[in-house]
């Protein structure tokens, strides 16, 4: 599992992905970790196949008792099917996820971890003195869907928005936006169901100060590429299957 530090300040943002030992037919995912003084948030911890390499990688940065928070942007198995295993590994953790998905997500196993339901209008996750905003991103692509925004680090973890299907070992940042577009087009047209929801999300994100847009698949966008992505996405027709 490759680790890239994407923010270093009084706390850290770490990106994990490009696992070389990932089974072939399983989609590659990016996991993000926010590490503060005494706590650790794992954002979209991943599928069950990824649990062991992911936890092993996080143990380089935090002991299990300080992995206190998990966040699931939505209910898909590549996001959170590892929950039942985290449930056995973490002695005192909370899962922040949509109130709407609680009944579904609990199928993955959630006995010792406390489920903190997020209402549709989002909320805040506080880790020590760090406040992370939970931004609604409904229908992008799941019907209840959230992003995480850190106004201090200027990072938006955007879930499936901005995702691309890449070759194994692809770089972690977009280096040529125009070339990257084709890796995203079909994914966004097919997986994002609503132009109205897309419009709503873009308007909301344009109001944020985002230096890094960090999706759950593929490469992250940095600096001007964030704006390029928003403009490109703005012009794209989605929901093409109907």
């Amino acid at each position: 599992m490759k680790m890239t530090k994407i923010y270093e300040g009084p706390y850290q943002w770490l990106m994990f992905g490009r696992d070389e030992n990932k089974p072939d037919k399983i989609i590659d995912t990016n996991q993000y970790v926010v590490r503060t003084g005494s706590r650790c948030l794992v954002i979209d911890p991943g599928g069950v196949e990824l649990f062991a390499p992911m936890l092993a990688a996080v143990l380089h940065h935090a002991p299990v008792e300080e992995i206190t928070d998990l966040f699931a942007s939505h209910q898909d198995p590549d996001i959170i099917s590892s929950l039942g295993l985290w449930d056995q590994a973490l002695p005192n953790a909370k899962l922040h996820a949509s109130a709407l998905w609680e009944g579904s997500i609990r199928h993955f196993g959630c006995e010792t971890i406390e489920y903190i339901p997020i209402q549709d209008n989002g909320g805040v996750i506080t880790l020590d003195r760090v406040e992370l905003q939970v931004i609604p991103a409904h229908y992008m692509h799941a019907s209840a869907n959230f992003n995480i925004y850190d106004p201090n680090a200027k990072i938006l973890m955007s879930g499936d928005v901005g995702a691309a299907l890449e070759e194994p070992g692809a770089p972690v940042f977009v280096d040529n936006f125009d070339e990257h577009v084709e890796k995203m087009r079909f994914f966004h047209q097919r997986w994002m169901p609503s132009n109205q929801a897309k419009r709503f999300w873009i308007d909301r994100v344009r109001d944020l100060d985002v230096e890094i847009l960090a999706p759950q698949h593929g490469r992250m966008f940095k600096g001007d590429d964030v704006k390029r992505f928003l403009d490109w996405f703005d012009a794209l027709q989605v929901g093409i299957a109907v």
């Binding site: 062991a52 092993a56 143990l59 380089h60 940065h61 002991p63 008792e65 039942g84 295993l85 590994a89």
Partner: peptide, 26 residues
């Protein structure tokens, strides 16, 4: 059984992770 096997796998993969020992109790 799956959890126990996976945690044993974590132990193998941690290498020289700073917080490897924190896994022992789990």
């Amino acid at each position: 059984t799956a959890a126990s096997n996976q945690l044993a796998r974590v132990k193998k993969l941690t290498g020289n992770a700073a917080y490897e020992a924190s896994m022992n109790t789990s």
